[in-house]
Design a protein around this nucleic acid. Structure first.
Lengths: 226, 226
DNA sequence: CGAGGTCTTCACGACTTCTCCACAATCTCC
DNA sequence: GGAGATTGTGGAGAAGTCGTGAAGACCTCG
């Protein structure tokens, strides 16, 4: 799966973009300023970066320059309509595409796909996930367990989908919270347990001996892989 | 594969643009003056035309007029920064986008893609949609529910059509706003709720228990699929 | 510039879901 | 088997979400 780093100081925008990209099947990281963008880019090595030019402190052009010194990760720039000269400088620095704000998120997803396709041909997100007895249709947001349709709340759905996308992979509670809320929030990790309980009650025939959503003692949870 | 005709009298520019478009996977034709541009456009029927306005002899606006008489091939205009009035005339004549010189070739490629995507998307849409009890004739913009003709406002019509084109698929409010206006922030997502309410009042026999336009709690809305 | 229709925004109540807690059950390791 | 840590679980209150009527902003056309 491809990872996209989204950098913008407006929470509303990062959230919107994250949701769209996530629904399009990308794994999404976010950062709100230039410093942390560079840090995340270096440690996580995303497959592409969506970068707002108008950042406080280290701005988007600085970030582009810093990145380009060591990497040719594809970059899509977001610019306010008035920053035409910035845009041109950005393209000269090696950005791959740009969008002016306000922009359509659908358009952004299309551009992200287009840029990634240019780099690597295999970028189509499967909208149907199958794992053991489970089938998830992410367009319709339907979950079937052994051909039985299950009714899940939004959080339960997101949690189960996240686990089932990577069967066998173990997630900590912190990672799952992050997947549900985007930001690693100061919050009660054991809220995850409550959602796990509810998911199990709905999909497991014997919730006390789960077949699908398994506990990894001392670490977290995973979806079964065989 | 899509074919693009590039018209410019400066060889340096046609060559640069040709290379970039070619690398982006397009087949490229070139012409250096208005006369030959028209000739090539007629014989080769390119999928889109990139046209410099400042041509010797028959200029870009003349070419646009001549083309528009018989075809609606998408046109992207290239203009010098000073020719603002030309640009406006060009857009009125039916150009699809424009770029001012000097421009970044990457940017041009992005625009070519965007314009082609727009055109393709509108071609795919079938003109009559049937879904459950609903029939939509998108040429006449008529909606029938159980053989009863319903009078919808433009926004209501667009909203319902968007939902009904993909029965069962869940749309977020942001996606629906995007579909209605192409933009999603700078705007109140719950405006969608108001339109949903109005649509339901017009098409549902019991708006409090809708059969067609359904709420997906915590996510958005969908059109029923079974 | 005014009238009619349309769209956006707001505020409130009804409802659903999430979070958090306390305690019980279970697991790990010695 | 026992001690300590970790996880399961029911339930209550907090937080979030949706439906709705009403008010005003915003067209658009005569």
């Amino acid at each position: 799966m491809k990872t996209v780093l989204v950098v913008d100081d407006e929470l509303k925008i990062t959230r919107l973009v994250r949701d769209y990209l996530h629904q399009a099947g990308f794994s999404v990281l976010t950062a709100a300023d230039g410093q942390s963008a560079l840090a995340v880019a270096r440690s996580e090595k995303p497959d592409m970066i969506v970068l707002d030019l108008g950042l406080p402190g280290l701005d988007g052009l600085d970030v582009t320059r810093a990145l380009r010194a060591t990497s040719d990760v594809p970059i899509i720039m977001l610019t306010a309509r008035t920053e035409e000269s910035d845009r041109i400088v950005g393209l000269e620095l090696g950005a791959d595409d740009y969008l002016t704000k306000p922009f359509s998120p659908k358009e952004l997803v299309a551009r992200v796909r287009a840029v990634l396709r240019r780099v690597d041909a295999s970028v189509e997100a499967p909208s149907i996930i199958r794992a053991l007895g489970l089938t998830i249709d992410s367009e319709k947001r339907l979950v079937m367990v052994d051909d039985r349709l299950v009714d899940l709340t939004p959080t339960e759905y997101d949690l189960l989908t996240h686990l089932a996308r990577s069967p066998g992979r173990v997630f900590t509670r912190a990672q799952l919270l992050d997947a549900l809320h985007g930001v690693t929030f100061e919050s009660y990790e054991r809220a995850i347990d409550a959602h796990i309980k509810n998911v199990r009650r709905k999909i497991e025939s014997d919730p006390a001996n789960p077949k699908y959503v398994l506990t990894v003692y001392g670490v977290g949870y995973k979806y079964a892989d065989a």
